[in-house]
């Protein structure tokens, strides 16, 4: 079949990413592996919340925290999935130089490597949300969920995360040491500043502007609004903004960050080629 270069790059990278992610064990163990980590992370927050609130799981505070934490899994897996491909292929498999000589589109190849992270995190998000609805009676009524808004926000958010991952991949190309820590540091920072598990207003006033320039803050808010409806407004980071305003901000920010990420990736990639970083191995 004669596929276009971008499509071939995407499909091949997706398949490769999936194999790297999953074929180290049998499917059952892989499924357990994929859900134990996120469930344990959610359990930490659930216990912390239940100790302080006397297990009042019907409060909008709990829904805020639980949903934000569940969907933040996409941030960690998609964003770092794209950028980690550089470290993996350059340092571990030592194939990045061969990939660069192959007739493929490199940015799309890297985005494809993030698809595996999207698939596994989707599985984990569904399980986490399911557990929340069954065991903690999260106030989500599947009949009243705004599915249109949810799907639109989800697609926009995943695209935005993948493009931010491309930016990190560019940085990883230029950094020899600590490249592995970059994704972790960015993921941890975004978790703190994006209002994932507490409203941005809880942060000290001088740190709050960081949260307001991150598209992830608006994305998580839209996801909560789509799932919870008016209940989300009772405990919200952006109570003054309507859904349409939030969507408009998310679209604008996604567009700006996407253009910026692609441009910066090209700049950093060119610099990496000049400095001979493409086939760098440090065993660091």
């Amino acid at each position: 079949m004669n596929r276009s270069v971008p499509l071939r790059s995407l499909l091949t990278a997706t398949w490769l990413g999936w194999k790297i992610e999953s074929n180290w064990t049998d499917p059952l163990l892989f499924a357990i592996y994929s859900i134990v980590k996120p469930l344990a992370a959610a359990a930490i927050l659930v216990v912390m919340y239940s100790i302080i609130s006397q297990a009042d799981f019907q409060s909008p505070v709990f829904a805020y925290l639980f949903i934000g934490n569940a969907f933040y899994q996409y941030v960690a897996r998609v964003l770092t999935g794209v950028s980690w491909a550089i470290i993996d292929d350059r340092e571990h498999y030592r194939t990045l130089k061969y990939i660069y000589t192959a007739p493929i589109n490199i940015p799309i190849f890297l985005l494809g490597r993030g698809v595996a992270g999207f698939l596994t995190s989707s599985f984990a998000v569904i399980i986490t949300m399911g557990m929340g609805m069954i065991f903690f009676k999260l106030p989500i009524d599947l009949k009243t969920v705004d599915w249109g808004l949810f799907l639109l926000a989800l697609v926009l958010g995943i695209f935005m995360l993948a493009m931010l991952g491309l930016l990190l991949a560019g940085v990883s190309l230029r950094v020899a040491q600590h490249a592995g820590g970059i994704g972790e540091a960015v993921g941890g920072g975004l978790f703190l500043f994006s209002g994932a598990i507490f409203p941005i207003s809880v942060l000290p006033a001088w740190l709050q502007p960081v949260g307001f320039v991150l598209p992830i803050s608006y994305w998580l808010e839209l996801i909560r609004r789509a799932l919870l409806g008016p209940l989300a407004l009772q405990y919200s980071t952006f109570p003054a903004l309507s859904n349409v305003q939030l969507l408009g901000i998310l679209i604008a920010m996604t567009a700006v960050w996407s253009v910026l990420s692609l441009w910066l990736f090209r700049v950093l990639e060119h610099s990496a080629r000049e400095k001979g970083n493409i086939d760098l191995t440090t065993n660091y």
Binding site: I44, I197, F198, P199, L203
Partner: peptide, 11 residues
């Protein structure tokens, strides 16, 4: 992150 969760919950 966890400190601010406790702060948000007024622990």
């Amino acid at each position: 992150g966890y400190v601010f969760v406790y702060r948000a919950l007024q622990a």
